[in-house]
Nucleic acid binder design. Structure first.
Lengths: 114, 114
DNA sequence: CCAACATGCAACCTTTTTGTTGCAGATTGC
DNA sequence: GCAATCTGCAACAAAAAGGTTGCATGTTGG
C-alpha cells in the first residue's frame, strides 16, 4: 500500500478536486469572501447571491468536501469558515511547476547562447 | 466601462476558468508533464493515457482555452507547450487570500490576548 | 504517387453538475 | 407555546462535461 505510484495518483486526485472546487465563479467568490472576513451563515451568504439558499448550500458543501471551508452548527444556523491549509499545497504546487519550467527555459537559453 | 466592479468580476471568471481547467486529474497530469518537459504531440501524449486520442484532444483544447497550454502546428503534428503565466496569477491569488486570513487570525489573537 | 501517420470535425451517449421547488425538522425569542 | 427563522433532505429538470466511434483532410517519406 505504500506504492509511491499510487500515492502520487492519490495526490493528483486530491489536488484536482481542490482545483475543481475553486473552478467556479460562485465558489471562488465564496472563498474570497470568507477568507477576508469572519464565518458566515448560509442565509447570510445567500442574501448577497443571485442563487437560492439551497443552490448556495450545494456550493458550500462542495467547498467543505474539498477541505477549503469548515462548517459548524451554532444554534439554528451553520457557520462556514475559511480553511487556508489546502490552498498552501495548491500554491506550492503551482510555484513548483512554474519553477521547473523557468529552469528548463534558462537551461535551454544558456545552451543556445553557448 | 472602467467600472472596477465589472473588472473584478471578469477577473473572477477568468481565474475560475483557469482553476476549472486544473480541476481534473487528466488535465492536471498533462500540465505537470508538459511543465517538466518539452512540447509534445497529441499522439505522443495519448500513448501514455488510457483515453482515446480524441478524448485527450478535448482536454488539451480546454487547457489551451484557459491559457495554460499553447499549441502550434508543425508539419502533420500539433505540439502543445506549457505556459506558466496564468499559473503565476493563480498562485499569487492563493497566497494573497491565505495571507489575509493569517493576518486576520493574528489580529484576533492579539486582541484576545490584550 | 501512395501508404502510413497525425490530426480535425461531427454525432452520439452517459454521467455529473447546477439549480430549482416543496416539505419537514430544529431553534429562537417574545 | 408558537410564530418566525434557519437549515436539511429529496425529487426533478436542464445544462454541461467526459468519452467514444466513424469519417474526412493534410503531411510525410520512400
Amino acid at each position: 500500500m505504500s506504492n509511491p505510484r499510487l500515492k502520487f495518483r492519490g495526490q493528483l486526485k486530491r489536488r484536482a478536486a481542490a482545483f475543481a472546487a475553486l473552478g467556479d465563479a460562485t465558489r471562488l467568490g465564496l472563498v474570497t469572501t470568507l477568507a477576508h472576513g469572519p464565518p458566515k451563515s448560509i442565509t447570510e451568504l445567500a442574501s448577497h447571491s443571485r442563487l437560492t439558499r439551497q443552490g448556495l448550500t450545494r456550493h458550500l458543501r462542495t467547498l467543505e468536501l474539498a477541505g477549503l471551508l469548515q462548517s459548524r452548527r451554532v444554534g439554528r444556523e451553520s457557520l462556514f469558515e475559511f480553511r487556508p491549509e489546502p490552498l498552501h499545497d495548491l500554491s506550492e504546487y503551482l510555484e513548483e511547476v512554474s519553477k521547473e519550467w523557468d529552469d528548463a527555459l534558462a537551461k535551454l537559453k544558456s545552451f543556445v547562447e553557448r
